[in-house]
C-alpha cells in the first residue's frame, strides 16, 4: 500500500474529532437557526406554533434592515482595505532578513490580541469620545473648536476594528511572502527589472495567496464583530451583528433574529465566494 492512498477507516478516525466539533458547534446551531427563522413569531413567548415566511418578508420589506446589511458590509470592506494598506508594508518589513528588533515588532503586531475585547473597546472609548484624549488634546492645542465626531459612528467602529484585526491581515501575508523564493527577485533583477518592478511583477502577485487569506479573515471577522461595534457604535450606528443580538436577547424575537442572522451569513458567504473567484490564482490550481 502506497502512502497517501491509505484505505480503511484510519483517515476518518483522524478527522473525527474535528468533524464532531464542527457538527456539534457549527452545523447543529446553523440548522437550529435555519429552522427557527421559519417559525411563527411568538406572543409573549420566543416563538409560536407552525412555520412561516413572514420573518424574511419583514426583512425584505423594511429598507432599514437592508441598509443595515449594506452598512455592515461597507464597514467590513473599509476595515479590510485599511488593514491591507497598513498591514502589507508591516508584513513585508517583518520578512526582511536583516530586520532588527524582529521579536519586539512581532510582539507589537500581536499585541491587540493580548488584551481582552471588552477592555480594548473601552480603551478606544476613552481615546475617541467627545471628552476623550484625542478631542481634548486637539481642543487644548486650539486646533478645533468643537469635538470631532470619532465615536458613535462608522469611523470609530472602523478604527477599533482595524486595530484588533490587523494581526489577522499581517500574519497570513507574512506567511505568503516568506514562501517566496528570494532567488525569484534576483532572477527578475538579472533580467533587467529594477527593485520596484521586481516587487510589482514578482513579489506582489506571489503574495496574493496571503493577501487573499488575510482579506477573507478580516472581512468575515468584521461582519461578525459584536462587542466593538456595540460599545463604540452605541445606539446610533448599529451593525447587523448588534441588531441580531438585540432581536434575540432584548426583544426576544427568536425567529426574526434568526432570519436576520442568516441573511448576514449568506451575504457574507456570497461575497467571500465572489472575492475568491475574482482572485483565483490560475498558477496555483493548475
Amino acid at each position: 500500500m502506497s502512502p497517501g492512498k491509505t484505505k480503511g477507516i484510519g483517515p476518518y478516525l483522524l478527522i473525527a474529532p474535528a468533524g464532531l466539533l464542527l457538527a456539534v458547534f457549527l452545523v447543529l446551531p446553523y440548522l437550529n437557526i435555519g429552522v427557527m427563522s421559519f417559525r411563527v413569531p411568538g406572543q409573549g413567548t420566543p416563538y409560536g406554533e407552525g412555520f412561516t415566511l413572514v420573518n424574511y418578508a419583514r426583512f425584505f420589506a423594511d429598507s432599514f434592515y437592508i441598509w443595515q446589511v449594506v452598512n455592515t458590509l461597507w464597514i467590513g470592506f473599509l476595515t479590510t482595505a485599511i488593514c491591507l494598506v497598513i498591514g502589507f508594508p508591516v508584513a513585508w518589513q517583518l520578512t526582511r532578513p536583516n530586520m532588527r528588533f524582529r521579536g519586539l515588532a512581532y510582539g507589537l503586531v500581536l499585541s491587540p490580541l493580548l488584551v481582552g475585547i471588552v477592555i480594548r473597546s473601552y480603551g478606544w472609548t476613552i481615546l475617541l469620545g467627545n471628552n476623550g484624549l484625542i478631542n481634548r488634546t486637539l481642543t487644548n492645542m486650539g486646533l478645533i473648536d468643537s469635538p470631532l465626531p470619532l465615536m458613535y459612528n462608522a469611523l470609530g467602529i472602523i478604527i477599533a476594528l482595524v486595530h484588533v484585526f490587523l494581526p489577522f491581515m499581517i500574519l497570513p501575508i507574512m506567511n505568503g511572502i516568506q514562501g517566496i523564493d528570494p532567488s525569484l527577485e534576483a532572477a527578475a533583477r538579472s533580467l533587467g527589472a529594477s527593485r520596484t518592478t521586481a516587487f510589482r511583477r514578482i513579489v506582489l502577485p506571489l503574495s496574493m495567496p496571503g493577501i487573499q487569506a488575510g482579506c477573507i479573515l478580516v472581512f468575515v471577522l468584521s461582519l461578525s464583530a459584536y462587542v466593538t461595534p456595540s460599545l463604540i457604535g452605541g445606539l446610533k450606528v448599529k451593525t447587523m451583528a448588534v441588531t441580531v443580538v438585540d432581536a434575540l436577547i432584548d426583544t426576544f424575537q427568536w425567529p426574526f433574529g434568526s432570519a436576520l442572522a442568516l441573511m448576514l451569513s449568506v451575504t457574507g458567504a456570497v461575497i467571500v465566494v465572489i472575492f475568491g473567484r475574482m482572485t483565483r490564482m490560475k498558477w496555483k490550481v493548475a
Binding site: D181, S183, L184, A186, A187, A188, I202, P205, L206, M208, M281, W283
Partner: peptide, 8 residues
C-alpha cells in the same frame, strides 16, 4: 540552481 522560474 533552483531555476527560479516565476511560478505565476
Amino acid at each position: 540552481q533552483n531555476y527560479a522560474l516565476f511560478p505565476h
